[in-house]
Amino acid sequence: MAEASLLYLVDAATGEGVEGELRDAIEDAQIVDWQTKWQPALIAVLQELDRRGVPVAQWPQSWHWDWRKKTAAVQGLLAFRGFSVVAAGVTQGLAQVDLTKSAREASQAGKPLVYVDYLEVAPWNRPDLGQPVRLRGVGTALLSAAVALSEEEGFKGRIGLHSLPQADRFYRDRCGMTDLGPDATYQGLRYFEITPDQARAFLKDEE
């Protein structure tokens, strides 16, 4: 059974706080939401992009992610953990992390970190899809969970991730992560890390 903690998101339309919960697992209910709510919403967005003649290269890069397969592939493995954000009875964001990777940033090289394998917010919370956003703060809540897990595991808050191009600015500017540049061994995606000092600053900002 997943443990849940209270969190507050922001209703983008009214600016008011919305109660939600951060769960330390991705359970069947989240997969059902992904399949029955996220997928139809995403397909509608993709159909609109197609209708407007937007090239596939400019479509949201996570459109093909299959959370059912991603969670099944690491079922029962201690090295992988999942997080979900639930609000208004619906899954608003998902993240899967890997605890076996090491830091690359010069001052932390070789030390363990929480590597964020996948992080995705529901299509209706994404500012990059050309539609009004419903809830703000889902992505940062998931990233905060990864930093908190890193601290719990004794990794001092270190986290790392490869960013899809549409999220580069979010990780660099909003989250204050160190941009270690494109990774030729990982589809050229930019690699970002949070050091222990940055982790403390990030969590303080999120309080």
Binding site: L78, A79, L99, T100, K111, P112, E153, G154, F155, K156
Partner: peptide, 23 residues
């Protein structure tokens, strides 16, 4: 010392890696 971890954290990390490799 090298990994900047407690001894317990080293052993927990070792268990994760061992299980992942076995799988």
């Amino acid at each position: 010392n090298r990994k900047d971890l407690t001894k317990t954290a080293v052993l927990r990390q070792a268990l994760r890696l061992y299980q992942t490799i076995e799988a």
